[in-house]
Nucleic acid binder design. Structure first.
Length: 272
DNA sequence: ATGGTGGGTAGCCCA
């Protein structure tokens, strides 16, 4: 069978320098065409370019920062344009976009790291939570102004559905699953005309996670996960969706990230 | 109800 035209993966790596061997293993085993990384936690000049080049990922757009945050998109296929967008008047490294060709059309991939939001889910007493809510609103407004086919991916730090957390009832007041966040993300999703590519294949009754805390004795046994990492596609791309998966196996690799990769396969665009 | 474990980095910041 011919390979799909595009395989896209997203992974919050929690330090790309510390975990470069896990990344290259993932690239070798799953061969995504494009990998979007978040929390690279290094400056642009510290990014491990050589390891990606050796793995065949010639094209790289890095938006790094010392110590915190940082995103990078690496690709085996050429991308023509890349830019970084700032949000909320901060110079946090939380976004990088690249434009690639899928079939005959141009496609912009927005790799995004939404603020985690701190512990207290009250914007009046917790500036980090206020920042998170404002960031989601500003991201939505920014994406609405962009007409081309697009993918919104990354660590959105929100588990939107009741089945995106291990206990809906117990997490309603925990940052990442509060109505203030899930409502805003849903507004962004519907106004922007986005489809959740993973939920396109997995029914909403089924529990699905992409993150498990480090603070569990046995992450698999307790299984208190959340689905924080997403791949969303604009309307024009929905007919090209072929498959989606979450690579939970990486959570058992040595010195793992607390997040695992999310992968989506795209087929050839339908003729119109 | 609490604290539990990981990053980056040199003081505690953050997830």
């Amino acid at each position: 069978m011919a390979p799909v035209p595009l395989r896209l993966a997203t992974w919050n790596i929690n330090s790309v320098r510390l975990r470069i061997d896990l990344v290259t293993r993932f690239l070798a085993e799953h061969r995504p065409d494009v990998l979007c990384l978040q929390e690279i936690k290094c400056r642009d000049d510290q990014f491990p370019h050589k390891a990606f080049a050796a793995a065949g990922y010639r094209y790289r757009a890095v938006h790094g920062q010392k110590g915190y945050h940082g995103v990078a998109t690496v690709s085996r296929r050429p991308f023509s344009e890349s830019f970084r967008q700032a949000f909320c008047g901060k110079d946090d490294a939380r976004h990088v976009a690249v434009t690639i060709r899928l079939g005959g059309q141009q496609l912009t991939i927005h790799n995004t790291y939404v603020p985690a939001g701190g512990d207290i889910p009250d914007p009046d007493v917790n500036e980090k939570f206020a920042h998170k809510l404002a960031f989601i609103e500003e991201l939505g407004a920014f994406l609405e102004r962009r007409p081309e086919d697009a993918i919104l991916t990354g660590d959105l730090n929100v588990a939107p559905l009741a089945t995106d957390v291990w206990s809906h009832r117990q997490l309603l007041r925990i940052v990442s699953h509060t109505p203030a966040e899930t409502d805003r993300l849903e507004v962004l999703r519907t106004r922007g005309g986005w489809t959740d590519a993973v939920r396109h294949f997995v029914p909403p009754e089924e529990k699905l996670y992409s993150w498990w805390s480090y603070r569990a004795r046995d992450w698999r046994a307790s299984n208190r996960g959340r689905r924080l990492d997403h791949i969303w596609v604009s309307d024009g791309l929905v007919p090209t969706l072929k498959a989606a998966s979450i690579v939970a196996a990486t959570r058992d690799w040595p010195r793992p990230s607390d997040h695992v990769p999310v992968v989506v396969d795209f087929g050839r665009p339908r003729r119109s």
